[in-house]
Design a binder for these strands. Sequence first.
DNA 1: CGCAGCCTTGACAAATGTCAACAAACGTGG
DNA 2: CCACGTTTGTTGACATTTGTCAAGGCTGCG
Lengths: 233, 233
Amino acid sequence: MIRPNDAADLRGLDIFSGMAESNFEALLRGAYFQIFPAGVDLIVEGDPSDFLYVVLEGAVELFASWSGRETTMATVHPVSTFILAASIRDAPYLMSARTIEKCRIVLLPSSDVRAVFGQDTAFAHAVVMELSQCYRALVKATKDLKLRNSLERLANYLLRQNRRSGGSGMFELRTEKRRLASYLGMTPENLSRAFRTLEPYGVEVNGNQITLTKIDDLTILAKPSPLIDDFSR
Amino acid sequence: MIRPNDAADLRGLDIFSGMAESNFEALLRGAYFQIFPAGVDLIVEGDPSDFLYVVLEGAVELFASWSGRETTMATVHPVSTFILAASIRDAPYLMSARTIEKCRIVLLPSSDVRAVFGQDTAFAHAVVMELSQCYRALVKATKDLKLRNSLERLANYLLRQNRRSGGSGMFELRTEKRRLASYLGMTPENLSRAFRTLEPYGVEVNGNQITLTKIDDLTILAKPSPLIDDFSR
DNA sequence: CGCAGCCTTGACAAATGTCAACAAACGTGG
DNA sequence: CCACGTTTGTTGACATTTGTCAAGGCTGCG
């Protein structure tokens, strides 16, 4: 039920690109291809990890809950997988996931993933590279959380997004502000105030459109570090 | 230069136990066995990852710094490895490490680790299991940080330590309080006050000796969750 | 003994969260 | 296309949490 284009997108992912064609086809045979509207709960933390998910189009929020509170852990954009660690370990999901836009998503049965993982060396190595990358990204996020206050986190987030979108000083927030606030570990009210506090540093906000007019000043405030803010190191 | 006993301890680790004997010996040939006093800086974040470290005896603190601040990320107890992700990826360390007790430590050259990783399927699979485990532990730590306030973090920490040491209601803090405070994301002053706030919940502190006399009450306050507080799930 | 480092305590400051109100943006159905 | 209700974002006043600074006690070690 997978369209050729989708298969090609999958194959283009680092994690699938090196594996034997026959194993890739074996994975595809058990795969489900689905379209979800925005706002659908895909997985709930604690559930057994039946599937490895791949987002082909749209956006998915990973979040976690405890004692009536909820926090955004990450936002997944195409094309990438999520909850790989749980699938490989055959352990319960630690995070929940919901669509925040209309999404095209592939579900690969975790048992198939584990089977191929045991047979295909190239795939096993790719999984290691992916996992170590996710681990390091999370170490950086933890340093961000523990070493910086909320204003510094926002300032560095803006600089990262700016770099990611070409460094022109103009870009769009790809997420609702309330979700951004939760991701940054603060309340929406506080995010609102933090944006205003950054005005003297050349941060202009118009809805989702951000313009940075004094990147040097903002950088002095934010003190970005390659060991926290670089994307792939 | 490795003593037979040490080699056996290494071999006993999940990550090394399944690999071919010849490959294990190859790893040992390049290994350095060393003893460090307390307070020695082993690695500094940002350095190239020349070695994979294994603690045989003692305790090592992993910490991170930014802009004059410092935070404890984890404490490593024997027998286990640390900074595996950086070694495998050949990427700079994201965390610094220092001994907090006298330590026996093995250093395995990262290039050897990567070479064996490419040849030995069992080792590659063990690395995946180890990395996914580290990743999930860090997801839990992040949920702990973002979803709980400092009192709740301390309460859950005490319950985890109690379970880990047999659940008798009596155990010892294996780390200085200032380090514990940093690990929990708070100041030493605040940790001190948090302990006093927990007195009505049956938390008795005598130096490093902790006694929990009302575990039920403390549990009601802490609301521990398997998806945050269980050790290996 | 005396020094140094850790822990604790109190007073105070700063950061962050909560609550309430309202405005703006959005989607839906008439 | 408009009217309506819902959600999101903003703002102000205030409460709570957390951090900072300074002082003093305790402990371990030379």
